[in-house]
Structure formats: C-alpha cells, structure tokens
Nucleic acid binder design. Structure first.
Ligand SMILES: [Zn+2]
Ligand SMILES: [Zn+2]
Ligand SMILES: [Zn+2]
Ligand SMILES: [Zn+2]
Lengths: 130, 130
DNA sequence: GGGATTTTGCGAATGGTTCGCAAATGAGGT
DNA sequence: ACCTCATTTGCGAACCATTCGCAAAATCCC
C-alpha cells in the first residue's frame, strides 16, 4: 500500500532545467517549445503534469497573465514577496519589501474589511530593455 | 459610410444591470446564469461581446482569477486604484491610497528596473463575512 | 411604417487543459 | 545484470471557455 518515493525522470529534469534558466513566467506551451528546441521530446501532457507537481510541492509560482493564460516560474511562493515584471521582455525580479508590509498593516482594517494578505506586481523595464 | 451611434438594446441593458448590482468579479458564465435567473434570455455569445464592448469603453475591470478564468466587474480602471477582495464572498471594495503611490515612487528604480506601474490586490474578509 | 445598419442567436470552430489507458521507464531486490 | 512492479509517459479523445460566421431579429432614423 505504501507509496514509493517519487521517481527521478528525464522529462522532469529537462522541464526543471528549462524553468531554472528562465527568469520569467512561461506558459506550458512555451516550456514545451523550449524542450523541443533542446531536442528533448516530451509530451505536453507531461509538461502539465510536472507543473502541477511542482506547484503542489511549492516550488513554482503560478500566474494567469492578462488574457487568462496560465504561466509558471521557478520561485517559491512560500516566502512572501512580490515581483517586478519587465513589460518588454518579461524578465522578473523579486521585490522584498518590509515597507510594503508596513503599509498593508495600516490597511488591515479597511472599510470593514479584515485584511489578511495582499499581492503586488510592479511593471516597468528591466536594465537590459531600457 | 459613417458609423451610427451604438444601439441601446435589451441584452446590453440586462447585462449592465447584472453587473451594476454585483460588487464582485463575475465570469461570463455567472453573468449568463444571472440573466437566466432574471428570466432574460440572452446568448452566451452576446454576453462575451457585450463584455468586450464594456472593456473597450473602459467601464469594467477584467481580472483572470487564480485558475485563469476571466472575470469582470463594473469599475473604471481609468482611475488608478486597488481592490480589497473578500476571500469568503468575493465582495470587492475600492482602495484608493496615496500612501501606496508614495511607496511605488520610492521603488521607481529598483534593481535596474525602471518601474512605471503596479497592481495590488488585498485579501481578507468583508464586514458581512466576519 | 420602411429601409439601412447593427446586434443577436445558433452552431461550428478554436485553443488551452485534462483524462484514460496501454506502453515505457525507474527503483529495488536478487 | 535481470526481474518485478509501481510510477510515469505518450497519445488521442474529451472537456471547457471563448471566438467566429452567417442568417434572422432588433434598433434607429426618417
Ligand atoms: Zn526587459
Ligand atoms: Zn519571486
Ligand atoms: Zn465577504
Ligand atoms: Zn475598483
């Protein structure tokens, strides 16, 4: 009955390596294309299943983009922080800001709302795209 | 050749009235269900087309939820502000905060990023759900 | 009311994501 | 290395939200 340990498989390693070298949110299709470019033949189903696994493990952040396309990035949402996203190339950098927490704290009780969390995204241009 | 003025139609009025009385983000399907409950027979296509129109006019805010389902709310994104969203019932209230702008300003140049915008969502429980 | 134009409903097409199942792979023991 | 068996993969079908094409209905204006 007991479950064995998770298997280490090539598709999973390949997918992880794609994510590891891209500092931006990628869709399942983009990851799949990256694998093909690397000559790694992996089905789209496996890409989706692996992404689900990574999300369950808390290793990636999932973000539906403006059109509702779901995108993924290697970044542990475990540690609360925010992102600066380049409008031009999509590069993402973490923004870790105590000042923001302070601000959120001051809003904790707003309009009858009992606030317990927040999400922030900053937009702009990264150093390379300026 | 010139375009005539936009038509005022019942489907559009019905859809607008659904949106006007719901202070929360609704999916196209939810709006469609609301119309049926009101006895208003409108096709889902028309719901989508009307939402596209409202978005083009800048009358609604469009927000893909965590699963990527696109949702809509009567709220002009023209005036920059943020939202407090009840985790329990979905009720949304506007958060208009100069302090946040100040904070964003101090981050304008972060890690080589030239920041020019930001989006914030606050979560918690509304007065009714406490 | 009549006619030009816009809007609607319907059903088909699309695109992203999920499922079911047989074949392939990985881990562990011999 | 080989065998065994649970896990994972690939494939195609299924699914769901959204978009399209086009004929019929509604709106506006005279
Ligand atoms: Zn950039
Ligand atoms: Zn991050
Ligand atoms: Zn509530
Ligand atoms: Zn608002």
């Amino acid at each position: 009955m007991g479950l064995r340990a998770d298997y280490v498989t090539r598709p999973r390693e390949w997918i992880a390596s794609i994510l590891a070298r891209e500092p931006r949110f990628l869709s399942a299709a983009q990851i799949h294309q990256g694998l093909e470019r690397d000559g790694a033949r992996v089905s789209l189903s496996t890409v989706y299943r692996t992404l689900d696994r990574l999300q369950a493990k808390g290793d990636i952040t999932v973000r539906p983009d403006a059109d509702g396309e779901v995108t993924y990035m290697l970044c542990e949402p475990r540690h609360h922080h925010h992102h600066a996203i380049c409008r031009t190339c999509g590069r993402v950098e973490d923004v870790d800001c105590a000042a923001m927490e302070q601000f959120a704290e001051s809003l904790r009780a707003h309009n009858g709302f009992e606030l317990d969390g927040h999400a922030i995204e900053f937009f702009g241009k990264c150093g390379a795209c300026r």
